[in-house]
Design a protein around this nucleic acid. Structure first.
Length: 272
DNA sequence: CGTGGCTCCTGTTAGC
DNA sequence: TGCTAACAGGAGCCAC
């Protein structure tokens, strides 16, 4: 479900409210992708300092340590003073003196991990190798992006998805940014012209930023920590539109499989 | 090393 | 209608 915009929208929807909160208790449901990594009781008494994001990871800094939250494919967070009784898909529940933070994740590809901080080996392992932050102008550098493309023979779509060059571009936005920059998803990264690469660079920034502004994408069930749905699906020009007319040329949008993932594109508008 | 395929799990949908 | 199979927004891990 969540790509960078959804994770960022989630972060913004509870970061300020949870600041300074003291952990009262933690309840775990079924196992997630990884174990919490410590006894839940160990976190009781900890105080939340701030909530940051790196790629699709939410980093909740505590006065001692750091919680890493990943929403996986189907996860969503809620933060509120009171929440309904735990449901079958609620697998992490953190009561604090400022409200309850709850992870609902039907598929359980998500995770909550307690670490000692960013230098913790577990945190390092997960965060190392992540690409540039596309919404951070100082971090997302054009020259580095171009050099990264030129250094890879991989088809561009899976390269974007890998997060090695830029983080946060998931399956929906990968199709959307390639359509916007008129690049074929199968084009080898090192075959993309500088002009097209520049369009791609800008499309990644613009489309992700717009999606954050709009509150994220709701294809099925995304909502932020206040429970509000996103509205970006209204903007999807190719994702999920195979067989429907291209908004630009009117020809049919095609569906392609790359690395077990669906890619949507316009064969007429997106060449090489 | 870079790349591609497999894997975790449950819910929804398409097709017969 | 009911059953079954395919597919879903992620990404680490392993084998080449």
């Amino acid at each position: 479900m969540p790509e960078l915009p959804e994770v960022e929208v989630t972060r913004r929807s509870f970061a300020v409210q949870i600041e300074g909160a003291k952990v009262l208790s933690i309840t775990m449901g079924k196992p997630l992708r990884w174990p919490l990594g410590c006894e839940p009781a160990k976190l009781v008494g900890a105080q939340v300092q701030q909530v940051r994001r790196r790629g699709k990871y939410l980093l909740i800094d505590l006065d001692q340590g750091m919680l890493m939250v990943h929403l996986g494919m189907s996860g969503s967070l809620r933060f509120a003073h009171t929440l309904p009784a735990l449901g079958v898909h609620d697998h992490f529940d953190m009561r604090t003196d400022k409200g309850v933070l709850r992870l609902n994740d039907p598929r359980r590809f998500g995770a909550v991990i307690a670490t000692d901080g960013e230098s913790d080996p577990v945190a390092r392992k997960l965060l190392q190798g992540l690409g540039m932050e596309p919404l951070d102008d100082a971090h997302f550098q054009w020259e580095v992006f171009l050099a990264g493309l030129q250094a890879s023979r991989s088809p561009i779509k899976p390269l974007l998805l890998s997060g090695k060059l830029v983080v946060g571009v998931g399956n929906i936005y990968a199709s959307e940014v390639l359509f916007a920059s008129r690049i074929a998803p199968t084009a080898a990264a090192n075959s993309i012209s500088t002009v097209k690469a520049k369009r791609l660079y800008q499309a990644i920034r613009d489309i992700l930023a717009l999606a954050v502004e709009r509150g994220g994408t709701t294809l099925r069930d995304f909502s932020n920590a206040d429970g509000m749905p996103g509205h970006f699906q209204l903007q999807a020009k190719v994702y999920g539109r195979n067989g429907l007319p291209c908004v630009h040329c009117g020809k049919a949008i095609a569906l392609l499989r790359q690395g077990q993932r669906s890619t949507f594109y316009c064969p007429h508008c997106q060449k090489a």
